[in-house]
């Protein structure tokens, strides 16, 4: 049985609890133990990196040091923002002794030696577990449900760190979806920005972004959008809910929600009602929900 460090991040404890549920269900089915790093702290998100560079390194460094202490060599961060913050902090510290000394001075008595490999969920599913392994666990094909895989910004924009997938045209999520019987459609907005946390503060500025993403999904005839980022999910879902009158709403689910169905995990009926735009109708149309 495989074991991997797990960093749920703040969103998965509140607005994206359902994501946490389906991740656990899917990984259990695949025989991978998620070991939550005890006492992990918030990655600082945009609020740290936009205001104080050293803080933006120190917050992830505390969690990375705890990960090392727990004897874990890899850390799975399902949220794209957390993934990006943890990865970039780890890599910058690894590559710069002076910086590493300064950050370690600030988090003392904790100390990060730079041994943790930070991973996002697509990387783990495709490269650690493998698509054939996922197919082996298939109990219910997804009936050709037409979906668009929405990757968003940070998953593959890993800057000077080699990305697990093409940074301008990633395919890994599409490959997973195809392997479990969905029909992933090519579309133009797979990497477009949802507005991130600015959506909460300056809604007027970011509305156009979500509108374009939903339109692009509608234009190719998608029945649902699929994402791995709780921030992307929230921004698009909330926009669609607030602008129902525009008739562009498409439900947006987590990849592990659909994988959960495909692998025969038990997800409660209330799971689907956690989204503002309830995907149950679409799922029932394909006999994927009873």
């Amino acid at each position: 049985m495989k074991r991997i460090g797990y960093y749920p991040g703040c969103a998965l404890l509140s607005s994206a609890k359902d994501y946490n549920v389906s991740i656990h269900a899917v990984f259990e089915r695949l025989g991978v133990v998620l070991e939550e790093v005890e006492d992990w702290i918030c990655c600082g998100a945009s609020s740290a990196h936009a205001t104080d560079d050293l803080l933006a390194l120190a917050l992830p460094a505390r969690t990375l040091a705890l990960t090392e202490q727990a004897g874990l060599s890899a850390l799975l961060a399902p949220c794209s923002a957390c993934f990006s913050r943890l990865l970039l902090a780890s890599e910058r510290m690894k590559g710069d002794e002076d910086l590493s000394r300064r950050v370690n001075g600030v988090i003392d008595p904790l100390h990060y030696r730079g041994t943790v490999e930070v991973k996002n969920i697509l990387d783990v599913l495709v490269n650690e577990i493998g698509i054939s392994e996922i197919s082996d666990h298939l109990v219910r094909g997804l009936d050709g449900i037409r979906v668009v895989a929405y990757y968003g910004c940070w998953l593959t924009r890993t800057m000077r760190v080699p990305s697990f997938d093409d940074c301008e045209d990633p395919r890994s999520m599409d490959r997973i979806l195809a392997a479990v019987g969905a029909e992933p459609l090519p579309w133009s907005a797979k990497m477009d920005c949802c507005g991130g946390s600015l959506g909460l503060m300056e809604e007027g500025l970011t509305q156009g972004l979500c509108r374009n993403i939903l339109r692009a999904a509608r234009d190719v005839g998608a029945e649902a959008m699929v994402t791995t980022c709780p921030l992307c999910q929230a921004n698009v879902d909330i926009f669609a809910y607030k602008h129902k009158d525009e008739d562009i709403s498409v439900p947006i689910m987590y990849l592990t929600d659909l994988l959960g169905i495909a692998l025969g995990c038990h997800l409660k009926g209330s799971h689907w009602r956690k989204k503002f735009i309830d995907p149950s109708g679409v799922l029932k149309r394909h006999a994927l929900l009873s």
């Binding site: 910004c153 000077r160 990497m191 920005c193 991130g196 600015l198 500025l205």
Partner: peptide, 15 residues
């Protein structure tokens, strides 16, 4: 107003 999406950074030919 910049949302830190990194689109610019990933595309800059001069890194």
């Amino acid at each position: 107003v910049c949302v830190s999406c990194y689109t610019c950074s990933i595309r800059c030919p001069n890194d």
